[in-house]
Design a protein around this nucleic acid. Structure first.
Lengths: 162, 162
DNA sequence: TGACATTAGTTGCGCTTGTAACTAACTGGA
DNA sequence: TCCAGTTAGTTACAAGCGCAACTAATGTCA
């Protein structure tokens, strides 16, 4: 008899099952943030992600936005359309490749971005408040590893996966 | 001038923004697991959670299931109905309180549970493989703190929140 | 006992989502 | 130059979701 226990013999406790726990905390995160954006600015998570990327990078194609913010292209398409309709972004055809368009924040979009950023950072701050910095660093490093491995295990959409 | 920087002055980088990162990793987790359950057993995440809780606790009301697995009562209701339709669970009225019913796995449900558990554990194992145990412990402790605080920040559904 | 509040669970509804199919545009080799 | 293959982005469709409203049963308090 081996001292090594077969995995099949171990019991499962959902509340300690890592995929479940990550899903729950991610759900809380997006729900809480969604409330902030939704109630004060009338936008959802996908719209927020588009704005955040444009605020950071200035000008992007929808494809770039999707890749940077891990969103399906249809979600990006709809979010950009919505923001366009509200006058928060513009779309400018790329003359060198007329399939794609450069999306950028309008002045109104930039003002909105400038309003949201401090709220988002304050939210994050309040969330991690009181957690020891070096523990947080470990947490973030492990999180990065899990995310990278999870990306492959999940096979993110039809993209890459070589 | 204070050396303490005002939060509003800091820049936001979405890919380092914690709520975003948690949401992404949670998405990968549920997508990857959903594939395993979906392709091999034809069930979704909500159904899996119901089965997992019943496999662990034996007999529960829908209310209990929802609380234990962080699901909205309508989601629980639909998942239980689906599992009932497939003959994987039974519902037995509680005679002491006829509003509620005890849900339990049938023999077929228990067999399914016994099949899924090792796969779920193997998946988790493969995911955390190679991560230093003490880093993982730190990770899980911080995760628990973030989850608990996130629960309050999000105000999980219409429940509690006192 | 009776009336009102609360709770477990279901269902109608509208919204969001991903898949698949599509259009339009570009690429690269023969 | 042409044509098959690829890519950016949109849209039709069906499935899944939460909210609100509902039913039926229980709890509470006078």
């Amino acid at each position: 008899m081996s001292t090594k226990q077969k995995p099949a013999d171990r019991a499962l406790h959902l509340e300690q099952f890592l995929p479940y726990r990550l899903n729950v905390v991610g759900f809380f995160a997006s729900r809480a943030l969604g409330r902030v954006y939704g109630t004060r600015f009338g936008i959802g998570i996908p719209e927020w992600r588009v704005i955040a990327q444009l605020g950071e990078f200035g000008q992007l194609t929808s494809r770039d936005i999707g890749e940077l913010s891990q969103m399906h292209k249809t979600k990006v398409s709809r979010a950009v359309s919505e923001l366009d309709k509200r006058g928060l972004v513009t779309r400018a055809e790329n003359r060198a490749d007329r399939r794609e368009a450069f999306v950028a924040l309008t002045a109104a979009g930039q003002r909105l971005y400038a309003q949201i950023v401090p709220l988002a950072l304050a939210f994050e701050e309040r969330w991690i408040e009181g957690i020891a910095p070096e523990e947080l660093r470990v947490f973030e490093r492990v999180l990065a590893m899990l995310t990278e491995r999870g990306r492959h295990l999940a096979g993110a959409y039809q993209t890459e996966e070589a």
